[in-house]
Design a binder for these strands. Structure first.
Length: 634
DNA sequence: ACGGCTGGCACT
DNA sequence: TAGTGCCAG
C-alpha cells in the first residue's frame, strides 16, 4: 500500500526523465537503418510472432501497441520491422538494454541527486543546481535561453497555440505541404517565444523561477544524452516526484513538460484517477467502484478521516495528499538496481513436469544470475546476500490447485555451481511445501531466481588480508579450512569485512499509532524492540570476494580466519548449504591484533564496538549507521 | 495458452 | 526474517 511521506518545507525541483520507446532506440542505434521506420522489439518469435515490448512512434501511428503479438502488429502495420530481443541460454537477455540504461544514468547523474527508477527512467533532485543557477545566471538575465528549453511545454500557459501546434505536428508527420510548413514554423516560433517569456519572467515567484532553472538544466541534460548516446528522452519538471512522473509522458517523444504550482489544481481535477501512479490497479478500481471516484478532483470531496476509514491510516493520508498534488517522497541517491533477477515462463504445453527439466532451466537461470552479480561485484564492488527462488506451479486434477508455490530464500553463496545447487534445494523445499502430503503430478509454469540485499563493499576495508598480515604469521596452511571457499575460478580467496546487515529500524510514527489501538500488537511491538536492544549489534560479516591479482597467501588467510568464529555461523535451514559469509562479534577480535592495523581501520572497528551516538539516552546501537556515518568523535 | 521479464515497495 | 501481494512499464 502506498504511504505518505512528510513533505519537505522548502520547494524542491524534481525531474522525471523517461526514455522514449527505449528498447527500440537501442536497436536503432545498433542498426541505423531502422531509424525513422515503424519498428518494434519483440521477444520469442516462435508463438504468434512473439510479444512486443517496445514500439516506435512511427509504428504507434498505425495502431501498433505494446502487448500485441508480432503477428497482430504485422496485420495493422505490414511494413513494421520486428527486432528480436537477444537470446542467451534459451531465454531473453536484456543486458544490452541494461547497459544502455547505465550510459544514460551516468550522464543524468551529473547535476544532482539521481535515482534509477527502472531500466529506462530516472528521477533527479535538481534543487541545489537550480538554486545555484538562480543565483549565478538567472534566466531573466540570460541573453539567449537554451533552445531546447524554449521547446518546453508549460502546464497552464495559454494553450491555443499548443493545441494548434500539436495538430500540426501530427500533420507534419504525414509529409505536409509548403503552406502548412510555413504556418507550422510561425506557430512554433510563437510558442517558443511565449515559453521563453515564461521562463524568463522577472516577476515570477521564487518557486516558478526555480522550476524555470530546472527546465533549463533538464533541457541541457537531455541534449547531452542525445549527443553522447543518440537516445532521445522526455521529462517532467515539477516540485515533487509524483507530478514530475505524471507529466513526463504527457508530451512524447523528445519533449519536456513543466508543472508550475499554479497549474496543479486545474491539471489534477479532471485527471482520471487511474492515471495516478499506484492507482492503476486494484486500489484505483476500488476508488471507482466503491467510492465513485473517477477523477482526482472527485477525491477532494473526501476528508482525510473518511479516506483513512476506508483504506487505513497510511493509504488514507496518502490519497488525501496526492489529490492536492502533495507528495513528500524523496529522490533516492541510487544509480544501481537493488536486486537482480532472471526468470522465464513455461506456458501451457511448455510447462516443466519433472525435476530434471526444472534443473536444466534452473541451471541456466542461475548461470545468468551468477554472471550478473559477478559483474556487479567487479564493476560496482557490491555483494548480494540473499538468493530467492520463485515459481508458479499447477497441480494435476485437484480443485486445490489455487494454492501458490511458495517462494524460498537462503544466504547467497558466490559461484555459479553453488547458486545452482542452492536454487535446486530451494526448489525442492518449495515443492515439498507446495505438495504437502499429497502425491499428485505437478507442473511448473514459471521459474525465477533473484539476488537481493545487495550492499556496497565499504571503501577502505576492501581486504582484511591487507591489514591482518602481521610480521610473524607462522601458521601452517594445513590448518586452514578452505572447504567453503568459492570454487568459481574467477573468485579468489580475498576476504572482505563489512558490517552486519542487521537492520536497526525504529517503527515509524504511523506504525506506532496503528499499534496503539491494539494492546496486543503494542505488546508484540515492544517485545521486538527489546530484543533489538538486548542483542548487541556488533556482529560483522566476512565475505568472500574476488581476488583479481595475486595468489592468496595461505598463512595470511589463516590469520584472518582466526577472527572468524565458525561456530556462530549457521545456515538458515536443512536445505541451505554453507555460505561464504560468517558472523562473528567484533568484540572477539584480539585487541593486540587491532593495534597492528592501520589507524583508519582501528577507528572503524572501534566505531562498530562503541555505540555511535550518545545523543539519545536510549542504549541503542546501530550497525549500519555507525558504519556509514562513522566516527562522531567524542 | 498466460504478455514476458524485470524491478520496487509495503505489510505481516 | 522470510514470504506474500500489489504495482509499473
Amino acid at each position: 500500500m502506498p504511504v505518505a511521506r512528510p513533505e519537505p518545507q522548502e520547494p524542491r525541483v524534481i525531474a522525471h526523465v523517461d526514455m522514449d520507446c527505449f528498447y527500440v532506440q537501442v536497436e536503432q542505434r545498433r542498426n541505423p537503418e531502422l531509424r525513422g521506420q515503424p519498428t518494434a522489439v519483440v521477444q520469442y518469435n516462435d508463438w504468434k510472432g512473439g510479444g512486443l515490448i517496445a514500439v516506435s512512434y512511427e509504428a504507434r501511428k498505425f495502431g501498433v501497441k505494446r502487448s500485441m503479438r508480432g503477428d497482430e502488429a504485422k496485420m495493422v502495420c505490414p511494413s513494421i520491422n520486428l527486432v528480436q530481443v537477444p537470446v542467451a541460454r534459451d531465454k531473453a537477455d536484456l543486458n544490452v538494454y541494461r547497459s544502455a540504461g547505465s550510459e544514460v544514468v551516468t550522464i543524468l547523474s551529473t547535476k544532482g541527486k539521481c535515482e534509477r527508477a527502472s531500466i529506462d527512467e530516472v528521477y533527479l533532485d535538481l534543487t541545489d543546481a537550480a538554486k545555484e543557477m538562480l543565483l549565478e545566471s538567472p534566466p531573466e538575465l540570460l541573453e539567449l535561453i537554451f533552445e531546447e528549453a524554449t521547446k518546453s511545454n508549460i502546464l497552464g500557459l495559454p494553450s491555443v497555440i499548443f493545441v494548434l501546434h500539436d495538430l500540426i505536428v501530427v500533420s507534419l508527420q504525414f509529409d505536409m505541404n509548403v503552406t502548412n510548413r510555413a504556418s507550422y514554423v510561425q506557430d512554433v516560433s510563437n510558442r517558443e517565444d511565449s515559453v521563453r517569456a515564461w521562463l524568463c519572467r522577472a516577476d515570477a515567484d521564487y518557486q516558478d523561477k526555480l522550476l524555470s532553472c530546472g527546465a533549463i538544466i533538464v533541457a541541457q541534460l537531455r541534449v547531452k544524452v542525445l549527443e553522447e548516446t543518440q537516445f532521445t528522452c522526455s521529462a517532467g519538471i515539477a516540485h515533487n516526484k509524483m507530478l514530475a512522473k505524471l507529466v513526463s509522458g504527457m508530451h512524447k517523444p523528445a519533449q519536456q513538460t513543466v508543472v508550475p504550482s499554479s497549474a496543479i489544481q486545474d491539471f489534477l481535477v479532471s485527471l482520471p484517477i487511474k492515471k495516478m501512479k499506484q492507482l492503476g490497479g486494484k486500489l484505483g478500481s476500488s476508488l471507482q467502484d466503491d467510492l465513485g471516484v473517477n477523477t482526482v478532483g472527485d477525491l477532494l470531496s473526501f476528508t482525510e478521516d473518511k479516506l483513512q476509514e476506508y483504506y487505513g491510516v497510511n493509504t488514507g493520508t496518502w490519497l488525501w495528499k496526492i489529490a492536492r498534488g502533495i507528495s513528500g517522497e524523496e529522490v533516492e541517491d541510487r544509480l544501481l538496481p537493488k536486486s537482480h533477477g532472471c526468470g522465464k515462463t513455461f506456458p501451457g504445453p511448455k510447462a516443466l513436469k519433472n525435476n530434471a527439466s526444472v534443473k536444466t532451466w534452473l541451471d541456466r537461470l542461475c548461470e545468468e544470475l551468477s554472471e550478473r552479480i559477478q559483474s556487479d561485484l567487479n564493476q560496482n564492488k557490491r555483494i548480494a546476500q540473499t538468493l530467492t527462488l520463485y515459481a508458479r506451479a499447477c497441480k494435476k486434477n485437484k480443485s486445490d490447485s489455487i494454492k501458490k508455490f511458495p517462494s524460498k530464500s537462503c544466504p547467497l553463496r558466490y559461484g555459479t555451481v553453488k547458486i545452482q545447487e542452492d536454487a535446486m534445494k530451494l526448489f525442492e523445499s518449495g515443492l515439498h511445501d507446495f505438495l504437502g502430503s499429497q502425491n499428485t503430478k505437478w507442473s511448473i509454469t514459471s521459474l525465477s531466481v533473484s539476488a537481493s540485499k545487495i550492499f556496497d563493499i565499504p571503501i577502505g576495508t576492501s581486504s582484511i588480508l591487507r591489514y591482518i598480515k602481521g610480521p610473524n604469521s607462522t601458521v601452517s596452511p594445513a590448518n586452514l579450512d578452505c572447504s567453503s571457499l568459492p570454487e568459481d575460478p574467477s573468485l579468489g580467496n580475498k576476504l572482505y569485512i563489512a558490517p552486519n546487515h542487521e537492520e536497526h529500524c525504529e517503527p515509524s510514527l504511523s506504525e506506532k499509532e496503528d499499534y496503539g489501538n491494539n494492546s496486543n500488537l503494542a505488546k508484540q511491538c515492544q517485545i521486538k524492540e527489546e530484543k533489538k536492544v538486548s542483542k548487541k549489534l556488533t556482529e560483522v560479516k566476512i565475505i568472500l570476494g574476488p581476488e583479481s591479482s595475486s595468489e592468496p597467501n595461505k598463512a595470511e588467510e589463516h590469520k584472518a580466519a582466526q577472527y572468524v568464529d565458525r561456530n556462530k555461523f549457521n545456515t538458515a535451514g536443512s536445505n541451505s548449504a554453507s555460505s561464504s559469509t560468517w558472523m562473528f562479534n567484533v568484540e572477539d577480535i584480539d585487541p593486540a591484533v587491532v593495534e597492528e592495523l592501520p589507524p583508519e581501520i582501528q577507528r572503524e572497528i572501534h566505531g562498530w564496538i562503541r555505540p555511535p551516538k550518545q545523543s539519545s539516552s536510549k542504549t541503542r546501537g546501530s550497525t549500519i549507521s555507525s558504519y556509514f556515518q562513522p566516527a562522531k568523535r567524542d
